[in-house]
Write a protein that binds this DNA or RNA. Structure first.
Length: 820
DNA sequence: TCCTCCCGCCAAGCA
DNA sequence: TGCTTGGCGGGAGGA
């Protein structure tokens, strides 16, 4: 055995095969498939060294090995090498590329039809595959794991899988997109890019330590696996490792594409998100590197599936490897697709008649393992608890009710930590992450906000109720999250290791992890936050029975206010040194606004739709913590003095808006390439009938509060109108162009948007510094007069402020995408 | 030099 | 206890 030598010619052939311009790749010719004669042995390295040291020895060794291997190859029906000598033999050796996972995946996929007949299942025997493809078993696992994440295969038994093909792919992608949207990956990407940008001003790394201490390691909390009904997940090890599984990584990676616009994701960003918190990048580079390695593995398989394609994104900070989604477009969540895939899959389809909780559970946890039973049991227990609490709250008056901390003490679901908030705060400030995270969870559970009025016949896209996942009381704490929009509900299971982390998410809820680090600016917030937690909880519960009217949203007035102030301060003209410092300071505060995302075991319960109460058992419904239509006079919204603005009319205060996330840096804008087509279209002309709506949607989509395909009219009645999310938003940018293959494309965002309803109109809520809104506008938005033109602020009729020009300009950004 | 990712060790856990 | 599964990171090929 010798070191595999370069095979330029064959490699090129293989490369050609791997880039077939979407032509189906055929199995490589047999000569190129010739495997190494021998498996690597423990002495192979020594042989390699000897071989490398002396060409003569190498040549002799080659011949000898060739002879030796020939017999084995013959035994294994691979005898080509037997007739090869010297260079020929060298050429026969597969190059590194020929052994790539992507090519191997091609071979693997070539064995099975894309759309197998549902009547006859295709089974995958790993032994056979490894033998026929002449690869290590380990490599097959890599492929199978990624395919499993897409539900193209499912594990049947030991050493045995079922091939589903692409039947499940549409449903899987839709589910992943939905989860990705709910996870606010767009925001995460924005945040990461913003930090990258700001890191240029703070290269000393000190900030990272602070962030790391603030967030701690929450990689585990990031892990979840999205299942489809009928496609069982039977990993060999159903605990522990599952949460770090390549499957989960693969799913999240795909999610990033599905929620991004354009659908290009750089490896770096993906790795950071997969790690959990990007602040760890510099502290643990090995972890980052490992993540990158895995992403390459995943990307290779996804590329073989023609779901993604490698490109390079060139930004100011350099050229980065990235991948572009080339798979099927995933339409906005619609209910009509939820069972489409399963109806054709070879796996047991979920009958729509299966709607009871028990049936859901059976379908989701068919295995006999302890885990399944435990989860099921705790699921019931949890929803019972929530149901009890919900019943209590529903019996209360419908007006906003301030729920005291003692209320929580009576909830078995919520340990008494609510009542211990002062202590928690103290611990939090002392860096006691566990307690802090517990409180984060509480806060996450208590952040609903109202939709004042909405069409009952409609199902607002924003009204996806929140599931509550306090996991500290049991090993696994499941909750069903109904999703009206798609009719797909999810059960989230918290892994025991995640119990201490903030894990809950709902589209309308911006979870606000309360930092445990000694961040100065946060201290003053905590008490207020705690107050708000206690007052908002009732809103969560009260909205249980009116989820379709709910607008999942959250407001954090204090944070918003302070953030706004910081934003304003930051935008003021300052000496550069001060600016940098301020950036650091701002970042701390911004970090505290970072959204955390769901963890655990996320399972869509497609057949348990929220709208069908008869089908969903009461207990299940109890697990739904939806939102309440809190009046504006609620103590929550009252925290921030808001003018009778248009924003208020459309319930903007319901959202926790962190405009800094979007506006602070040009990079963040580039990081949020979802330049809403509706926004840009309508805003590009002054005759747009409702620029406020456009701007509002633009911002809401940017911050992930609404999906890209949803629009909210800025009229008092909150509605949503799904629009195509597949519009090429880039093309709406001036001077932009769609990404083309094989070229370096530049597209520039210099997009005017009308500001009349823009989010920073909220800034006047900072009464102490009335002059600052001006600075904000100046800093983050450019008027047509030029980057330094100072727009004059004027009051709208509704009390909000806007620039005199009425038009905002996003700072110009460049993003180049090239494909290799 | 950096990117890419193959390779196989070895631990977890299943049968 | 052997085998399956898969996390993980060293390190080599390639650009």
């Amino acid at each position: 055995l010798k070191t595999p030598l370069k095979q330029a010619a064959t490699s090129q052939l293989v490369l050609t095969e791997r880039q077939p311009d979407c032509q189906p790749l055929t199995t490589p010719p047999k000569p190129k498939e010739t495997p190494p004669a021998d498996p690597w042995t423990p002495t192979s390295n020594l042989k390699m060294l000897i071989s490398a040291a002396s060409p003569e020895i190498r040549s002799r060794e080659q011949r000898r090995q060739l002879s030796d291997s020939s017999s084995e190859v013959l035994q294994t029906k691979h005898c080509l090498q037997e007739h090869l000598l010297g260079d020929e033999y060298e050429k026969s050796q597969p190059s590194r590329k020929e052994k790539s996972l992507g090519l191997l995946c091609h071979k693997f996929l070539a064995r099975y039809p894309d759309y197998p007949s549902p009547s006859q299942k295709s089974y995958i025997c790993l032994d056979e595959v490894t033998e026929e493809l002449h690869v290590e078993r380990r490599r097959i696992y890599d492929i199978v794991n990624v395919l499993e994440s897409l539900h193209m295969v499912s594990r049947l038994a030991r050493n045995r899988y079922v091939w589903h093909g692409r039947h499940n792919l549409p449903q899987t992608l839709q589910a992943l997109k939905k989860v990705g949207e709910e996870n606010k990956y767009i925001q995460q990407i924005q945040m990461i890019k913003k930090r990258e940008y700001e890191h240029e001003f703070d290269p000393d790394g000190e900030r990272n330590e602070e962030m790391a201490s603030s967030f701690g390691s929450s990689e585990q909390s990031e892990m979840s696996f999205v299942e489809l009904p009928g496609v069982e997940f039977r990993a060999a090890s159903v605990n522990g490792r599952k949460y770090k599984s390549l499957r989960v990584m693969s799913q999240k990676f795909v999610m990033l594409f599905l929620v991004s616009t354009p659908q290009i994701v750089s490896l770096e960003v993906a790795a950071k998100i997969l790690i959990g918190e990007d602040q760890l990048e510099d502290l643990d580079k090995s972890k980052f590197k490992t993540k990158i390695r895995r992403l390459y593995d995943i990307a290779n398989v996804l590329s073989s599936l023609k779901l993604i394609k490698k490109v390079h994104v060139t930004e100011e900070r350099g050229r980065k490897p990235a991948f572009k989604w080339t798979g099927p477009e995933v339409l906005p969540n619609t209910q009509d697709t939820k069972l489409e895939a399963t109806s054709t899959t070879s796996s047991p389809p979920i009958s729509e008649s299966i709607t009871s909780k028990e049936q859901c559970s059976k379908a989701l946890f068919p295995s006999k393992g302890k885990q399944s039973f435990t989860r099921h049991s705790s699921l019931i227990k949890l929803v019972k608890s929530i149901e009890n609490d919900r019943r209590k709250i529903q019996s209360a008056p419908t007006s906003p009710v301030k729920i005291s901390a003692s209320t929580y003490q009576s909830l078995p679901v919520f340990p008494n930590t609510i009542a211990q908030f002062p202590a928690i705060t103290k611990h939090q400030l002392e860096g006691q992450s566990k307690t802090a995270e517990e409180m984060q969870m509480k806060y996450a559970l208590s952040s609903p906000e109202p939709v004042p009025k909405s069409e009952p016949s409609q199902q607002p896209a924003l009204s996806q109720p929140l599931g509550v996942c306090p996991a500290s009381h049991s090993s696994v704490s499941p909750v069903i999250l109904p999703h009206l929009q798609s009719g797909v509900s999810y059960a989230i299971y918290l892994h025991p290791s995640q119990a201490h982390t903030v894990t809950t998410y709902s589209p309308g809820f911006m979870l606000q992890p309360l930092p445990c680090a000694n961040v100065t600016g946060i201290k003053s917030n905590n008490s207020k936050v705690l107050n708000k937690i206690t007052t908002e909880e009732g809103d969560i519960q009260r909205g249980l029975d009116e989820p379709t009217k709910s607008l999942a949203a959250e407001e954090r007035p204090e944070t918003k206010s302070e953030t706004s102030q910081r934003c304003l301060k930051r935008s003021q003209a300052l000496p550069e040194t001060n600016l940098i410092k301020r950036r650091k300071s701002d970042e701390e505060s911004l970090d505290t606004s970072l959204t955390f995302f769901p963890s655990g075991y996320l399972i869509p319960l497609t057949h348990c739709t929220h709208s069908n109460k008869a089908e969903c058992s009461t207990k299940e419904k109890a697990g739904v913590c939806s939102l309440q239509h809190t009046a504006y006079s609620s103590p929550i919204t009252g925290v921030i003095p808001m003018p009778a603005s248009e924003l208020k009319t459309v319930n903007i205060p319901a959202f926790h808006i962190t405009p800094l996330n979007i506006m602070l840096s040009p990079n963040s804008i580039a990081a949020a390439p979802v330049l809403s087509n509706s926004c840009l279209n309508s805003s590009s002309t002054s005759s747009a009938p409702n620029p406020s709506s456009s701007a509002l949607n633009f911002m809401l989509q940017h911050i992930g509060l609404i999906p890209a395909g949803v629009q909210i009219p800025a009229n008092p009645v909150l509605q949503h109108m799904p629009v195509s999310s597949q519009s090429e938003n880039i093309s709406h940018s001036s001077g932009s162009t769609n990404v083309q293959e094989g070229k370096v494309i530049k597209f520039t965002f210099y997009s005017p948007i009308n500001e009349s309803n823009c989010l920073f109109s909220l800034q006047p809520s900072a009464p102490k510094e009335p002059q600052e809104p001006q600075a904000v506008t100046e800093n983050f938005f450019r008027t047509p007069g030029g980057p330094n033109t100072e727009p004059a602020l004027s009051a709208n009729s509704d009390g909000t402020q806007r620039t005199s020009q009425g038009t905002l300009y996003i700072p110009q950004r460049k993003l180049e995408v090239s494909e290799d």
